[in-house]
């Protein structure tokens, strides 16, 4: 490549400026700029995504109808379980746990990159959304909010390299930390070699760490590998949420943190 010294210097300026921005991503001013930018671009993206969505409406109605029927059955089952739970709790003298209020939201944009799987939703600080609020849909855990604008927020989904969640195998109560494997699966870390984990086991949030409430479905174990030299199992989990076609989600609001734009 034949480039003059001045041209190399210009490239150097761009590279250093980019590296400077990369290094300062967690700084408050940069977070504020990003929060403002997601709010500004959010309106245009929402308009575009609504336009695109009209093409898939009939398919969506069919899917939601069958999902609704399934959910009605599940609600009936859970209602019975809740009543039973209430009776048992009363017997044991447990405190009643307060359910989190749900804030419905629409996905207005996607990250557009295969290694960063974030989504933008059309609710923000004005709706009471805060950093680290869990995001779910009817299938299970979608992710958590990591940047809040006034009307829009960015969410790190489960299949994002920055995502971590305290999880537990529902059947055997084996705890671990869930993270993205780099592909279409997640890995449940820190599972001892002798722990009882089988293919087909359901993995849910454990409630440890204080970010995600207990019991939200995350995925199903699809592979368990053991290495003779390691003290831990390698547990691969397939998320239950279809991240390629996310359209509606809900944010679990909590009241223990104050809402600030740019957080």
């Amino acid at each position: 490549m034949r480039a003059s010294l001045r041209e190399w210097a210009a490239l150097g300026v761009c590279v250093f400026a980019s590296l400077g921005l990369l290094a300062g991503n967690e700084d408050r001013p940069v977070q504020l700029i990003r929060a403002t930018a997601i709010s500004i671009s959010g309106s245009a993206q929402e308009l575009l995504s609504r336009f695109t969505r009209t093409f898939s409406l009939s398919r969506q109605v069919a899917r939601l109808t069958s999902e609704n029927a399934q959910l009605l059955l599940e609600v009936a089952r859970y209602r019975n379980a809740a009543l039973e739970n209430q009776r048992l709790r009363a017997l044991l003298g447990f405190k009643e746990t307060t359910p989190f209020p749900l804030l419905p939201a629409e996905v207005v944009a996607y990250s557009g990159n295969s290694a960063i799987r974030s989504i933008k939703i059309n609710v923000g600080a004005e709706d009471g959304v805060k950093r680290d609020c869990p995001v779910v849909n009817s299938q299970g855990l979608v992710g958590k909010v990591y940047l809040v604008g006034s009307d829009y927020s960015l969410v790190h989904v489960v299949l994002d390299r920055n995502f971590r969640a305290a999880a537990v195998v529902e059947r055997s109560r084996v705890n671990g930390i869930l993270r993205w494997s780099g592909g279409e699966y997640c890995i449940l870390d820190d599972v001892p070699i002798r722990a009882d984990v089988r293919i087909g086991d359901v993995v849910v949030t454990s409630g440890l760490g204080g970010i995600f409430p207990k019991g939200i479905r995350i995925g199903v174990v699809v592979q368990v590998s053991e290495d003779a030299t390691s003290l831990f199992k390698l547990v691969y989990v397939r998320p239950v949420v279809d991240f390629n076609r996310l359209e509606e989600v809900a944010v679990l609001l909590s009241s223990d943190r104050s809402a600030r734009v740019g957080e």
Partner: peptide, 23 residues
């Protein structure tokens, strides 16, 4: 800024692309 990728990553990548392609 619009997609939620770390700020600076895109500018680094696209600046390098611009330089290599143009030169």
């Amino acid at each position: 800024l619009t997609a939620g990728t770390p700020l600076g990553l895109g500018s680094l990548g696209y600046s390098l692309v611009a330089f290599v392609i143009r030169v």
